[in-house]
Write a protein that binds this DNA or RNA. Structure first.
Lengths: 355, 355
DNA sequence: AACTTATATGACATCGGTGTCATCTCTTGG
DNA sequence: CCAAGAGATGACACCGATGTCATATAAGTT
């Protein structure tokens, strides 16, 4: 591979002049520039990043650690691949910034993380980004890295800067829309409450009710799924029995996510009820394969994973450029409500968004 | 960041001795090693890959270019994300080999490729891998790279080494199973014949018939989809009319892919026919969301994208280690037939595989 | 003309490792 | 007892860029 010396010799100039042509950081005579440029293309010269970096101490690399590439990508499990979207968002912004993204996959085992971090540090990445597959608390072992670290879709006790989905606000926005549409008896079927997202969504549900001055009825708030593995739906069925059997039953069922809504659609129908005439339904995630395919299409709310990725990339670049700057609390990113026909509008409302 | 000199000074030895401890390439006294190791951990020393590389001229990097991260990941479009699986496979093998994979995404525009290649060359990648999103012919602009180049899921005129899915053998294997099950009138509804995969699958269909001594009936081979965008299904419906109206109609419908089979299921039913009692069905891709969910479950065949990725990684490593070695023709990788109840067994057969 | 300033270029050291070669100290066998 | 070989360590140059400083020429100013 040709070096800057080869180019210099062929062009009849000093290596430093070639360097100047490369970087444009000092004036170079027109004739000299031409000579250097033709020498470079003749030799197929490409500057070595390694050599460049030794001098400047800036690698231009960002290390990204994720499990996004290693899941089973099975559309039968409607998880929606959030981390892949986040990685996309990060990639988009980085590509424009001139930094190069190094992506390492954990292959599903977090035990590999320290080794991956070490490799990144050997490459002198300017920052480390860790993307989790769902909203959770983690312990990201930075192996004593001194570079900026950003967590995405997760957070830790130490208060490392993080970009998080605003589950609470999304749920609250959705419930607020339901209230605007005239509903007051709103039931909530939550996911496993040990999940961070489930807790936040429930809180958002309650906050929307309180903000509207309606108040929470504990009888309307039930757990619809106990563990991530509990797929038989018996818990959900029982919860549904209980809430529909109330003296003052709900007019809307808010589900912890779209998949649960899909199941509830079936259970509602097998009870001889219609959506939305007899009861309205709402989901969470805007998992299109479900929300748009169901009949009637499902009103839901979306966590903006792509924007989260983009925001994460912007934050990282900011951290690199302003090393001293303090980054306060986690950044929360919320997404839009998608209003579809699964909710019966008791009041005439302005549509929020139909697509 | 601590350097090897800092470690050497703290441990009271020469930098070269520290280097020896790092690489284990020469004997070091027990006491000296201990001293060096504790100095390293005390300083949090991590060797600089850039410096290391300058001397050894081996970057330990593999460049991967793909659009896998940038698609719309919409399970409503049942494409199956082949390239993402391939990337996974490559990642798995690379992680074990000690090489670091640099992944660059084209963001859907192939115009970015030369720039990405250039960035990779600056990092002195030891090989370049290009992964296409579907089986196709390409022109991969290597920008005069002198390192090994491998194409995956695509090929070019120049005969660059490539790893390809064996569409022909997969289709032929599937049809051979249908014949073993006693079928002789086998129709084939192909994808757009301008697609490489469609041509190969049709060829596999014909070869299986010829190998079995049955011979091809042109009336049984029809185009079911003209362009990638043609989703209204009118062409498919017409083709179905034609083939079902034959004096000697087929006993099986082989579809260009599982998605087409899904549509045909509906069209068959709306004609009052049952699968498989009145007519058997087969697909292609083993796109689980469809093949396992349909009733009855769909017999189909799978292109082994993950193994293709693993094979690609192994090939690349081989190319790096044996620069002189010649790599003949593209490597074709085939996958298994999944035998499900959409095919009526006219003969008693041994099951191939039910899951 | 003398002086300032801008433009254009090169010499040389340096970044942090590793390859080469030299040196020194022990063993060990003849 | 001494040569030969193994083990342990260091001095020094080098990989390919760029930062610093020096120098030479041209152009503009008083």
């Amino acid at each position: 591979m040709a070096t800057i010396y080869d180019v210099a010799k062929l062009a009849g100039v000093s290596p430093k002049t070639v360097s100047r042509v490369l970087n444009g950081d000092a004036p170079v005579g027109e004739k000299t520039r031409k000579a250097v440029e033709s020498a470079m293309s003749e030799l197929g010269y490409v500057p070595s990043n390694a050599a460049r970096m030794m001098r400047s101490n800036r690698s231009g690399l960002i290390g990204l650690i994720t499990g996004a590439l290693s899941h089973k990508i099975e559309p039968t499990e409607p998880t929606g691949l959030p981390d892949l979207y986040i990685v996309q968002g990060i990639q988009q912004v980085m590509a424009d910034s001139g930094k190069t993204l190094m992506i390492a996959d954990t292959g599903g085992s977090s035990a590999k993380v320290p080794k991956l971090v070490r490799t990144f540090l050997q490459h002198r990445v300017e920052a480390l980004v860790y993307v989790a597959e769902y909203h959770q608390q983690t312990m990201f072992d930075t192996g004593g890295a001194t570079c900026p670290v950003l967590l995405v879709n997760c957070f830790d006790e130490a208060g490392t800067p993080a970009i998080l989905p605003d589950d609470e606000k999304c749920q609250s926005d959705l419930v607020a829309e339901l209230i605007r549409a005239g509903h007051e008896r709103i039931a909530y079927l939550s996911l496993d409450p040990t999940m961070v997202a489930a807790k936040l969504r429930s809180r958002g549900y309650r906050r929307a009710l309180e903000d509207a001055g309606i108040g929470c009825d504990p009888a309307l708030e039930l757990v619809g799924r106990k563990t991530v593995q509990d797929y038989d739906g018996s818990l959900l069925n029982a919860a549904l029995d209980r809430v529909l059997g109330l003296d003052n039953p709900p007019t809307v069922l808010c589900c912890g996510n779209d998949e649960m809504a899909l199941r509830v659609y079936g259970m509602i129908r097998s009870r001889g009820m219609r959506v939305p005439e007899d009861i309205s339904m709402a989901g969470f995630d805007n998992y299109r394969a479900i929300a748009e395919t169901l009949y009637p299409p499902l009103t839901t709310v979306e966590l903006p994973y792509l924007p989260m990725g983009r925001s994460a990339a912007a934050t990282v670049l900011d951290m690199i450029n302003n090393k001293n700057k303090q980054f306060a609390g986690p950044e929360l990113v919320a997404g839009p409500v998608f209003w579809r026909s699964s909710v019966n509008a008791l009041n005439p409302v302005t549509k929020v968004r139909t697509n």
